[in-house]
Design a protein around this nucleic acid. Structure first.
Lengths: 148, 148
DNA sequence: GTTGACCTTGCCATGGTGGGAAGGTGCAGA
DNA sequence: TCTGCACCTTCCCACCATGGCAAGGTCAAC
């Protein structure tokens, strides 16, 4: 399979397949005499694994660890579970930080009548009288880094 | 005030103050004869505004818009509210995507006994038998981009 | 005049991903 | 055989917000 078919079959873009190869997340693909990369079923399988892990929000370091365990017959499922639980804990932390932000904003927005006058509790809150909440924000970014 | 004091007073690092100046989010600070930037109370106020908006997860574009409205006497609070609500909607979307990820992982982890054997439902799930959930993940990044 | 705290500019890195340029390859049809 | 097209290759740039580091300037206190 050439990279385009591999991309379609795995759900990982050709661009990212090359990138994963460059950072050593997947082994360098063989070339078919010409310069083209060549992929087999095992490669697709691995790429799909990565895709699913990405979909679950795992970062590259953890995916790397998971891949290592995946291809280790003598692995301990306790190790796998630990990685998953660590990641879940981080997810929960980010979720609650964002929950706090959203709640604060809901309150501010509710206090704003939106009638078109200059008077605005939201700006008021941002300008200084914010009810002293989200310190968690310093630890977590709530903006997306994977463009939609 | 020099930049260090301004940073301490506003909660925005000196580095970021310079960056905000570079991207035009704050006006270029005056210099005091020497090369040092000089800040007054209004500057601190503005920086604190930015800091609070960042803490609520606003991205730079929205902060820029909020700042414009903030310093516009003839603003409409409907405009402000719209920006806030747009942002809240994005937050909620990301929260629910991450909620889905966390839930899926909770399930997988619960199915894994973690007794140390190679047998592992988590890897099984990643390897292909994942219960067909998080398509939302394609739209939202759950990893932090602001380092902790 | 030396020390130390602070400032300056400028470059690099992060993490995943996409965009695009400039050029090579392979296959189908005229 | 030539042409066109779809695909591939490598390489560089951009995002967003932030931190780190380096090499050098400035100022106040001792």
């Amino acid at each position: 399979m050439r990279i385009g078919e591999a991309a379609a079959a795995s759900g990982v873009s050709a661009k990212m397949i090359r990138h994963y190869e460059a950072i050593g997340l997947v082994p360098a693909a063989g070339r078919r005499g010409n310069e083209y990369r060549d992929y087999g079923d095992a490669d697709i399988h691995r790429l799909r694994f990565i895709r699913r892990a990405r979909d679950l929000g795992f970062g590259m370091d953890r995916i790397r660890a998971l891949l290592r365990l995946w291809s280790d017959r003598d692995r301990s499922n306790a190790d796998v579970k630990q990685i998953a639980l660590d990641h879940v804990a981080e997810l929960e932390e980010r979720i609650s930080a964002m929950r706090e932000m959203a709640d604060t904003l809901h309150e501010l927005a509710a206090a704003c009548d939106g009638t078109g006058r200059p008077d605005c509790p939201i700006l008021g809150g941002l300008a200084g009288t914010l009810p002293a909440s989200p310190r968690a924000a310093a630890k977590v970014d709530a903006r997306p880094s994977r463009p939609v």
